Amino acid sequence: NQASVVANTLIPINTALTLVMMRSEVVTPVGIPAEDIPRLVSMTVNRAVPLGTTLMPDMVKGYA
């Protein structure tokens, strides 16, 4: 099973992502692959992402 990116904290809308905000976890449904974490750093989220939420491609500006 592939690990996905999961919010390690509440990420407010329009926040630039940092490494400490994200962790990898095997979850269903599958979200952004964990190997993309380095690429996500400094990208911003377009909605509030609660703790434990899987990051989906449409949640990160410029990812999809």
Rank of each mutant, 00 (worst) to 15 (best):
Q2K: 05
Q2A: 09
A3P: 09
S4D: 01
S4P: 01
V5D: 01
V5Y: 02
V6H: 00
V6G: 01
V6Q: 03
V6Y: 02
V6R: 04
V6M: 05
A7D: 01
A7Y: 02
A7M: 04
N8Y: 05
N8V: 10
N8P: 02
T9Y: 12
T9L: 12
P12I: 05
I13E: 15
I13L: 12
I13M: 09
N14Q: 11
N14K: 07
T15H: 11
A16W: 07
A16T: 15
A16I: 11
L17R: 00
L17F: 02
L17Y: 01
T18G: 04
T18I: 05
L19Q: 08
L19R: 12
L19F: 11
L19I: 06
V20N: 09
V20D: 10
V20W: 13
V20A: 11
V20E: 11
V20F: 15
V20P: 08
M21N: 13
M21L: 06
M22T: 02
M22E: 00
M22R: 00
R23W: 03
R23G: 05
R23M: 05
S24M: 08
S24I: 06
E25L: 06
E25R: 06
E25I: 05
V26E: 15
V26R: 03
V26C: 06
V27D: 02
V27R: 09
T28G: 05
P29T: 04
P29L: 06
P29A: 04
V30G: 08
G31V: 02
G31W: 03
G31Q: 01
I32D: 01
I32Y: 01
I32W: 02
I32L: 08
P33F: 09
P33H: 07
P33Y: 15
P33K: 06
P33R: 11
A34P: 07
E35Y: 11
D36C: 06
D36N: 12
I37W: 03
I37K: 13
I37Q: 05
I37G: 04
P38G: 11
P38N: 10
P38L: 12
L40C: 03
L40I: 14
L40Y: 02
V41A: 07
V41N: 03
S42V: 03
S42K: 10
S42A: 13
M43Q: 06
T44K: 08
T44V: 12
T44Y: 13
T44F: 09
T44W: 12
V45G: 00
V45Y: 00
N46Q: 09
N46F: 13
N46C: 08
N46S: 15
R47F: 15
A48K: 08
A48N: 10
A48H: 14
A48D: 14
V49M: 05
V49I: 15
P50E: 13
L51Q: 12
L51N: 12
L51W: 13
G52E: 05
G52T: 02
T53A: 12
T53G: 13
T54D: 00
T54L: 05
T54Y: 02
L55F: 08
L55N: 01
M56F: 08
P57F: 07
P57G: 08
P57T: 07
D58P: 06
M59Q: 05
V60L: 06
V60R: 01
K61H: 11
K61P: 07
G62A: 11
G62S: 10
Y63M: 05
Y63Q: 04
Y63S: 04
Y63H: 04
Y63C: 05
A64G: 11
